[in-house]
Design a protein around this nucleic acid. Structure first.
Lengths: 210, 210, 210, 210
DNA sequence: AATGAATGAGCCTTCATTCAT
DNA sequence: TATGAATGAAGGCTCATTCAT
């Protein structure tokens, strides 16, 4: 093994850039065709390189999938981490939903998110990655919620925070499904839901206006 | 074209039975391996017939997938239709979640449900089928909710029913994702969520017990 | 697994014939190009069938190699078994050597025999097959030698028969190497060697003439 | 052609050293994996240089194989040349056999020897090299045998020496095959064979002991 | 109606070789 | 000289689909 196909040891800047190039291309292809329908040839073409070269940077197709997934997960964690105590979730969720409906090839993609999930049910390695990150995300999110409530003078028991965070997560992830299945859903439904639901789960004092 | 592979025109009883056999086999295989990893060979074996014969009843693999999806959708509609005004959703949802976690080969399967959804983002025919049925289901479900509230003396505006139904749907579908990603989730979280969430969305008078 | 790719269970006559066709083609290609340089495409072409079809009858290329090897081994055993107590080895060996020098694509081939041997040093499965058959062949050959000597009134101890059989085997197999490396060896050398060597190892009473 | 990849013309000392480094590495790899399974990458790694550099010293992989073969042949000739008139072959052969069974990565390797031979049956250039050297070796060996016998007071006709040398060569080369196919052969068989065979071919007066 | 043998395009992957640096 | 990134032609294998029987 001369290549640094698997992520051990130092990697040159160029190598990092190439990996990025491949991952970007792969993401595009995965979004467009799905994990399995996307061929290595299509990825290499999208990345503007020969098929063989990909294998200098990734051991095989699966490990590209895994890298994409880990990347998405980190992004998810970053999003949670970026939440401030006084963040209003509503606009963020609406944006998220919109981007899901549009299915942008570069951004977080709802089909990809769902496919990731499905993949976990067949590929233990992916299942593990997902579980690990989901646990982190859950904790981060729960912590954020607790903090947010606290800073608004509301004190909730751990159990209470837990079910609220869980429910909200389910709701938001359920939106991924809706975004795919109803690409032209009347947004007012979502607005209404958020306006009514969110306060139920995050019982913060009213902000003025909508 | 001698075959009636596509569903136009009269179809003999035998043909219907054969289609059923194939669909049942396909469903089993799809649940076990996923749409794409399941091979026609595995389906034909599960159906106890030759691969060639399948093509007398279905034009190709995609149309089997389509048929499976339509079937699932009908089942979904039937489930909604079977709801009675006084149904308590909680046990049903818990059962559903459990079956999702177990990934039973015959029953509704969470990964399959998600894969169906993903498929819609690439296959317009499937997208259409999903949209059409989701619309029906939404109506049915909303109607059920309205009826149920009414029969409990609670009167909600259309808009109100709508966001509640939508939210509940998202929550439940979000559970499908959780079921796959956290196959060994502590059920108490779910119990707590349902105990607290459900009344928020379905403001029925308290039943005694749990 | 619908196919009977591996040799378990009953196999139809047609299947047997196909396997034969493939093995014959493979043997031809292996002789011509070697195990590794012979491609599945070349084999399928030689067999007059599509590449995919081969996999209905053989699990993979390795198992074709293995089958070829087992076939050769059986042939070797059959040759030993066909020896009669009064067989004169000399003409048989000379014929063998000649056929080796010619490298006929259908018959036993010296390069193939050598390649089989090399392969054993890297592929444990093949090593095992070779060892198993070599043991049988050794026994058969030793038994034949003992019988032959006995029927000529010569009684040798087990140990004596053993080293003679071993030496003769080495000599003959060494001829395979010579046949490949000296395709136009002056046959008189071989004749002389056999005339002088053979009696040393197989001390039978003189037959008249050469 | 700027490179002196093919061995024509003057070559600098450094170039010679580099070639040596490559050949040593190649030999190691060939012994370990075989000619075809050994990749240029593995060779370059073993040689501690980049793959590209190898092509400055060798035109392609085949010419490395050829060089290795020529090297082995020279070694073989050297071994023969090193024989002294009074050498007792037995311990040498036993050592040889042992080293073959062990398949040492640096020393002469039985599989490699066989693979070399096989290669000759497909590559005329190699065939030629082998034939040429085998002729030399045969002469050297025959000469040594004649000398040895003479110095022991035994006079053999040319023809007699010839068949004895030939037979002995076949026997020894046959041992290479046995070494690969029976890596755990009971050495006593070999001892017995040599004790009995060798005097038959090399009719020297008895030395005391075994 | 049914079989299952047969096809062949296409997939992932490897590796000898080249070339910009 | 030397590097090692890059190429691209195969190679082994799979599988949806067809077709002779």
């Amino acid at each position: 093994m001369t290549q640094n196909a698997s992520g051990s040891g130092k990697v040159s800047k160029r190598a990092q850039a190439q990996r990025e190039r491949i991952l970007a291309a792969a993401q595009k292809c995965f979004v467009e065709y799905g994990f399995h329908a996307a061929s290595m040839a299509s990825i290499s073409e999208a990345a503007g390189m020969s098929p063989g070269l990909i294998y200098r940077y990734f051991e095989n197709k699966d490990s590209i999938i895994l890298a994409i997934i880990e990347r998405q997960l980190e992004e998810g964690r970053a999003n949670i981490a970026a939440l401030r105590a006084d963040t209003d979730l509503k606009p963020g969720i609406i944006d998220l939903f919109r981007s899901w409906q549009q299915n942008y090839p570069d951004a977080m993609s709802a089909p990809l998110f769902l496919e990731m999930t499905v993949e976990a049910s067949r590929n233990p390695q992916i299942a593990e990655a997902l579980q690990a990150t989901d646990a982190v995300i859950r904790n981060d999110f729960t912590a954020w919620m607790k903090r947010t409530c606290a800073s608004n003078g509301i004190h909730l028991s751990d159990e209470e925070v837990q079910w609220r965070a869980f429910s909200l997560k389910c709701f938001i992830e359920g939106l991924a499904i809706r975004a795919v299945r109803e690409p032209d859903l009347d947004m007012s439904v979502l607005h209404n839901s958020l306006k009514a639901m969110l306060p139920l789960l995050l019982p913060l004092p009213d902000k003025a206006g909508d």
